[in-house]
Design a protein around this nucleic acid. Structure first.
Length: 861
RNA sequence: GCCCACUUGGCGGAAUAGGUAGACGCAAGGGACUUAAAAUCCCUUGUCCGUAAGGACGUCCCGGUUCGAGUCCGGGAGUGGGCACCA
């Protein structure tokens, strides 16, 4: 108990109230039917062992919302868990000879303690960890269900290989050609991998973005670009008769184009080096084989790929142009991608930059078929729209109309058809790592691939694993684990030794939270009751990773009727990064902020005295050492100060600059508030809920309170937490100027009324101090946490005057007090009678007037 | 190259719907208290002119719409982010 102390001791106050909340089960949620449910979720953390400032920010934001909604009468679900699988645990095992499970469990314990010290209002009874056997079991059931529904398949494909993590990665995990965690250049390998059929939902994933009204536009745009829909046509090109003796290749060569209108400009065809026909041809031609081998080497290395020129090799084949019947040479070209469209294109040098370069190099014809609308000469290649030329029946058509015309013609001729293609690829979800969810599949000796029998679930990881070998898949290297038998037939079998991408784990955890101990993966009724998540909060770095995968899972589960909702997150909020200035010593080594000493505006190293350079502020990161440890901050100032600072300085979606003066400022403010409350003696003063205060003297305080209830509520509703903080300070600046000892009993009631409301308003932000103040104010028997959110009665704002601005020709000239709520005519009549207005006008003629009641009187002279 | 977002004092940022630009805070300067310092409290603080009253200018730049533009429209610059041989 702390309120007997004479200084603000945040640590003891915070510990005290955290225990009370836990004892009273304030934040436990029971599933209740009805529409007053509200599900707030922040992206669950990877248990690295220590919270960082980014965590403090996102969890504070989520908690303000959860506590606010609870006060507003919502039945709030606010759970927390652990994204517990992943590489760092395995790395720790290599380095420190500790089992990943033990390492992870220890980290969870530490981080849970740290999170609890922040006073976040989680329902810890719903805690889940993705490495729990129960979660693994339920997830394996989902895997098998997807497998049976053909939403999962295994295939050999070029995969992104991370040479540091020794595993494949999904396309979404490759950023700028580098591994998203390791940061090293990704290699390409031809491997047999498990894929999730995310492309089956390409169109739905794209279309339903429109339904996500409460998502940030930039995230939606990123997903839209990632899905990358383009519409055009597939066109069949027949090879000339003399070329038709190629074994294993039947039928026409099909190309995809978004510009079928330019077909009369086609002067060559080009195949991807790994196109089926290229592979066939390489068997009989040494030169082609050489070309493809060279390409494979370049292709596996992103860096040289970027610099590589457009090259190709003539195949010796010719195709027939479907309209002109001319023969067109077929090339293999290194810039054609097998993974997009059909892996083959027709080259139109006049209207495509790449084709233009290629044609120049190999002296291929450049035929212009689109001209500018004005018929002026244009520079080739010209990729824009225009008027068709040199195109037979298309001539003079607008290129967009030509596109439609040619598709119709192709369809009539049965030489092609309208096609829509997507950039998005299926999700490669297997990983050659130990610390992940085992894939519940066995390979039977007769060659059959089968899911593990449901009675055998969960398939758990073996404990006795040798981490001393750095190469290879640890599960695959285990002496016995993978050997098993088929329970049905008794045949020998080998287990799948790959584990699942951790993004699989996080693609459905938010649904599991609804009923985390249910016997099946999803309790449909309860999940439907809570989901979609009303407000999800997390970092934008997951725009095309987790957020896309979770949307896909939701659609997949919905298609299997496991849930009735179609999108996982109704509202999404992406908080900004926490940044800090960076510092370097004279040798350009990064140094920690706390090692820097400031003297006469110059910076020195605290210990060595070396001069220090201050560099720009960037996201806090270990490598640049510009980090501030939240655990130390909470120890020094308390969680409330840290939370308050996180909310005050920047809008939540923008970057937040961490400064020591900022955190100090927040702390000073809380101390000032605490001191103010401590010297009050208001516990005996009371007021009725419908308290109506009329006395002239303290009108200001009651009015302002109502006004600010309204303002603060609106700011919270709009996620403008920094504005809400400013308004909270404004209201407190009003009451801090009151000397309670000078007030009569009516005045004391007004003060108590104002303070009571103010504490509730601030309670989502600094919950511990709010409880303490609540108690000091005399409400020992209740918790501010379970109070109703105040309602502003705007009738109380009976300010009888309005400040009206008098403008002449749009320039402000006077600000006048006049009675409030006069209509336009009354306002003008009143103002025109006033001497100051008459003086202003002088003897000039008034041409026109405008009145905005209570705001503006504008004169045109 | 394509797409998106942003640009307001020394700094972080406010500004319903086009209607007093700079709320709230940080930093800075001055003052009070103190033997002194810290802490606290009070005052000043967009720029320029003026002793002052007051005036002029001012939301990245240029132009437009309007009685009135930080806000709307057209053009341009800069910063940040996403995608990138996607046919």
């Amino acid at each position: 108990m702390s309120n007997n102390e004479s200084v603000y001791n945040a640590n003891s106050i915070e510990k005290y109230w955290q225990e009370i909340w836990e004892k009273e089960k304030c934040f436990q949620t029971n599933s209740v039917d009805g529409n007053k449910n509200y599900y707030v979720l922040e992206m669950f953390p990877y248990p690295s062992g220590r919270i960082h400032m980014g965590h403090v920010r996102v969890y504070t934001l989520g908690d303000v919302l959860a506590r606010y909604k609870r006060c507003c009468g919502y039945n709030v679900l606010h759970p927390m868990g652990w994204d517990a699988f992943g590489m760092p645990a395995e790395n720790a095992a290599f380095e420190n000879n500790i089992h990943p499970r033990d390492w992870t469990k220890k980290n969870i314990k530490n981080m849970k303690e740290q999170l609890k010290s922040m006073g976040i209002s989680y329902d810890w009874s719903k805690e889940i960890s993705t490495c729990d056997p129960e979660y693994i079991k339920q997830q394996q059931k989902i895997f098998i269900k997807f497998f049976k529904a053909k939403l999962l398949y295994k295939k050999e494909a070029w995969a992104n290989w991370d040479p540091v993590e020794n595993t494949v990665l999904a396309n979404e995990q490759v950023i700028d050609g580098k591994g998203w965690r390791s940061g090293v250049k990704i290699e390409r390998k031809l491997l047999n991998q498990w894929f999730l059929s995310i492309t089956k939902f390409s169109d739905e994933l794209l279309q339903d973005l429109h339904l996500l009204k409460n998502w940030p536009e930039n995230v939606k745009t990123m997903q839209k670009n990632w899905i990358g829909k383009s519409s055009g046509a597939e066109i069949s090109f027949f090879l000339e008769a003399k070329c038709n003796n190629i074994e294993d290749f039947k039928g026409p060569l099909v190309v995809f184009t978004t510009r079928p209108d330019t077909i009369y400009g086609a002067s060559f065809l080009a195949l991807a080096p790994d196109h089926q026909l290229s592979t066939i041809l390489s068997k009989t031609s040494k030169d082609i084989k050489k070309f493809i081998t060279k390409w494979e080497e370049t292709f596996s290395n992103e860096e040289t790929l970027e610099k590589s020129q457009k090259e190709g090799i003539f195949t010796g084949l010719f195709a027939v142009h479907p309209f002109t019947k001319k023969s067109i040479p077929v090339y293999i070209a290194n810039y054609v991608l097998s993974s997009y469209g059909t892996g083959a294109i027709f080259g139109v040098p006049a209207h495509d930059e790449r084709d233009y370069i290629f044609a120049e190099r190999y002296k291929l014809p450049i035929i212009q078929v689109v001209n500018s609308y004005s018929n002026q000469e244009i520079k080739l290649p010209y990729v824009g729209a225009g008027k068709m030329v040199n195109s037979d029946f298309l001539n003079n058509l607008d290129s967009s109309l030509a596109k439609e015309a040619i598709i119709k013609k192709l369809e009539n001729m049965k030489a092609g058809s309208r096609k829509v293609k997507y950039r998005i690829r299926d999700w490669c979800a297997s990983r050659q790592r130990y610390w992940g969810c085992p894939i519940p599949i066995i390979y039977r000796e007769d060659g059959k691939i089968m899911p593990v029998d449901e009675n055998e679930l969960p398939v758990l990881l073996p404990d006795d694993i040798d981490f001393s070998k750095k190469k290879g898949n640890p599960l695959d290297n285990h002496p016995s684990w993978k050997y098993t038998t088929c329970k049905e037939t008794g045949l020998n079998a080998i287990r799948e030794t790959d584990t699942l991408d951790t993004f699989f784990d996080s693609s459905w955890y938010f649904i599991r939270f609804a009923d985390p101990s249910h016997k099946d993966p999803i309790n449909k009724e309860v999940a439907d009751n809570w989901c979609p998540v009303h407000q999800y909060v997390g970092g934008i770095e997951h725009a095309v990773l987790h957020l896309l995968y979770a949307r896909f899972f939701t659609k997949a589960l919905s298609s299997l009727e496991d849930i009735s909702f179609n999108e996982p997150f109704n509202g999404l909020f992406c908080q900004g990064m926490v940044c800090h200035k960076t510092y370097q010593d004279s040798k350009k080594n990064w140094i920690y902020p706390e090692e820097v000493r400031r003297e006469n505006n110059k910076l020195y190293h605290k210990d060595t005295g070396d001069s220090v350079t201050e560099l720009r502020s960037v996201k806090m990161s270990k490598s640049k050492k510009n980090i501030v440890d939240p655990v130390n901050i909470i120890k020094k100032y308390g969680a409330d100060t840290a939370r308050f600072f996180m909310l005050s300085d920047s809008p939540p979606e923008r970057k937040l600059e961490w400064t020591s003066s900022g955190i100090d400022g927040s702390n000073k403010y809380l101390i000032k508030i605490w001191n103010f409350f401590k010297k009050l003696k208001l516990s005996e003063v009371s007021f009725y809920e419908d308290y109506d205060y009329k006395q002239e003297k303290n009108n200001n305080l009651v009015e302002k309170t109502h006004l600010y209830i309204d303002k603060i509520t609106k700011s919270l509703d709009n996620f403008q937490y920094n504005v809400a903080v400013a308004q909270i300070r404004e209201l407190s600046n009003v009451f801090l100027s009151y000397e309670a000892s000078n007030e009569d009993s009516e005045g004391l009631i007004a003060i108590k009324f104002s303070l009571t409301k103010w504490i509730i308003l601030i309670s989502p932000m600094i919950p511990h101090l709010a409880e303490e103040l609540w108690k000091i104010l005399g409400y020992e028997k209740t918790l501010v946490t379970s109070q109703k959110w105040p309602k502003a009665n705007l009738n109380y704002i009976k300010n009888t005057n309005a400040k009206i601005v008098v403008q002449i020709n749009g320039k402000k000239k006077l600000v006048l007090d006049i009675p409030k709520n006069l209509n336009k005519k009354q306002t003008q009549e009143l103002l025109m009678k006033r001497e100051d207005v008459k003086t202003l006008i002088g003897n000039r003629d008034i041409k026109k007037t405008f009145v905005v009641p209570n705001k503006i009187f504008s004169l045109v002279i």
